[in-house]
């Protein structure tokens, strides 16, 4: 009899332990990180983790307006790399991203940024035409044009997306189809294969989780 009571007690105890351990869901941090000694408000030294962040950038958008990181600062945004004459993965990526765009259209804290990697052809006018035909209007989804150097460096070093020119590829360029989720502090919090529907569904679930982190 004693044995029974004690086993029930152990059970109860473990249940309470487990349920109290449940943390709020948080998205992971991508990229490199290092520890840094910082002083907090009270002047006490402590060690903090510093995560990789997206640096300042400045490009022309689809309206030929100089656009900088100011438009995405303080917002959660999804970034990707594409080009308008791409016939392989980009149409699928943007078809899927469109569904995310439509879901968060009215949320002022969410933005979309697509960088073209075709620095020869995709001038702002080509981007504008593309955006219009895709069905995107307004500043919520920016299509950005920049020099090869600036865009490719940003892609590979900062967003961790591989891009490149390849004369053997059908359309002349190769790139990965990741949709990169960036938080309000410019840290990468997710990367989703834009050609896979189930990963894009996950992105739709993760954006609210990320927004909730800032609501405290």
């Amino acid at each position: 009899m004693n044995k029974l009571i004690s086993s029930i007690a152990v059970c109860m105890l473990s249940i309470t332990l487990f349920s109290s351990c449940q943390q709020e869901k948080k998205l992971p941090f991508y990229g490199e990180r290092h520890a840094e000694t910082v002083r907090d408000a009270a002047g006490v030294e402590k060690i903090d983790t510093v995560y990789q962040t997206i640096p300042n950038w400045s490009f022309l958008n689809q309206d030929s307006v100089i656009t900088t990181n100011n438009v995405t600062d303080g917002k959660v945004y999804v970034a990707d790399f594409f080009f308008t004459s791409c016939t392989t993965i980009c149409p699928t990526m943007h078809r899927n991203l469109m569904t995310v765009y439509n879901e968060f259209k009215t949320n002022p804290d969410v933005m979309f940024v697509s960088h073209t990697i075709d620095f020869k052809y995709d001038k702002p006018s080509a981007l504008k035409k593309y955006a219009k035909k895709l069905g995107v209007d307004g500043p919520k989804w920016q299509f950005l044009y920049g020099s090869k150097d600036s865009v490719y460096t940003l892609a590979e070093k900062n967003y961790l997306v591989a891009v490149g020119e390849d004369s053997t590829a059908k359309d002349g360029y190769i790139h990965q189809g990741y949709l990169v989720l960036v938080d309000k502090d410019r840290r990468i919090r997710g990367a989703y294969d834009g050609t896979k529907e189930e990963q894009v569904e996950q992105l739709k679930k993760d954006i609210p989780v990320l927004l909730a982190e800032y609501k405290k």
Partner: peptide, 13 residues
């Protein structure tokens, strides 16, 4: 990729 799983096309592209 372009014409869609159900032949629905993609916007006006």
């Amino acid at each position: 990729n372009c014409h869609g799983e159900n032949g629905e096309g993609l916007g006006q592209l």
